[in-house]
Amino acid sequence: MKKFLASALLVTLAAPLAACGGNGDDKLAEQAEDRAEAKADEVRAMGGNEATAERIEDDGERRGDAIDGSDVDADKLTEGQKNAMTAPQ
């Protein structure tokens, strides 16, 4: 019974934490990754260097992780700011 109670308490305490970070940063992070992947696909389609395409994808993933980790409130950003944050380098 103690194990069940402890598990139930843990789930109850963890549920609000799982909802944290709902500032739109997850969606913004995903956009950064998607835009980088699309740019890398363009590079490949134009016969570009595979290493360059990989670098673009890796940069997009790092960018996405940084955006997600920053917990930025994406709802308070202008479209220009969002574009600057998600644009592939």
Rank of each mutant, 00 (worst) to 15 (best):
78 T>Y: 08
86 T>H: 04
27 K>W: 07
58 D>W: 10
35 R>S: 03
48 G>K: 11
6 A>L: 13
25 D>Q: 10
43 V>G: 01
87 A>T: 15
23 N>R: 07
89 Q>E: 12
66 A>L: 09
35 R>Y: 06
20 C>S: 07
19 A>C: 04
15 A>I: 13
22 G>I: 04
87 A>I: 04
11 V>C: 04
52 T>C: 05
37 E>G: 06
44 R>K: 15
78 T>K: 11
78 T>R: 10
15 A>C: 06
6 A>W: 08
77 L>V: 11
43 V>K: 11
80 G>E: 07
28 L>S: 00
40 A>E: 01
82 K>E: 03
37 E>M: 13
20 C>N: 00
81 Q>A: 09
10 L>K: 01
72 V>L: 12
77 L>I: 13
62 R>M: 12
10 L>S: 04
52 T>I: 14
30 E>S: 09
12 T>I: 14
49 N>F: 08
87 A>Y: 09
2 K>L: 07
36 A>R: 01
40 A>W: 02
86 T>N: 02
6 A>H: 02
49 N>C: 13
8 A>M: 12
13 L>Y: 03
63 R>F: 08
76 K>I: 08
24 G>N: 00
72 V>F: 03
33 E>P: 06
25 D>C: 05
80 G>C: 09
22 G>V: 08
54 E>K: 15
45 A>L: 12
51 A>P: 13
87 A>F: 07
35 R>M: 06
5 L>Y: 09
66 A>P: 11
87 A>G: 02
22 G>T: 07
9 L>V: 10
21 G>W: 11
48 G>H: 13
64 G>Y: 02
13 L>S: 00
26 D>F: 13
30 E>P: 04
42 E>G: 08
76 K>A: 12
11 V>T: 03
74 A>V: 11
55 R>F: 13
39 K>M: 13
2 K>Y: 02
5 L>V: 14
33 E>D: 05
50 E>M: 14
22 G>F: 11
70 S>M: 09
50 E>S: 14
60 G>C: 06
60 G>T: 01
84 A>H: 09
69 G>K: 10
68 D>S: 15
78 T>W: 06
33 E>T: 12
49 N>A: 11
37 E>K: 15
74 A>E: 02
76 K>V: 11
34 D>E: 08
8 A>N: 03
71 D>M: 12
81 Q>W: 05
81 Q>R: 10
83 N>K: 15
76 K>G: 04
89 Q>W: 10
35 R>V: 02
19 A>N: 00
26 D>Y: 12
29 A>H: 04
12 T>C: 10
82 K>Y: 08
13 L>C: 08
66 A>D: 07
74 A>S: 10
57 E>N: 12
24 G>E: 00
79 E>F: 14
30 E>Y: 09
61 E>S: 14
7 S>L: 14
48 G>W: 13
44 R>S: 10
12 T>Y: 05
83 N>G: 09
18 A>F: 15
32 A>I: 03
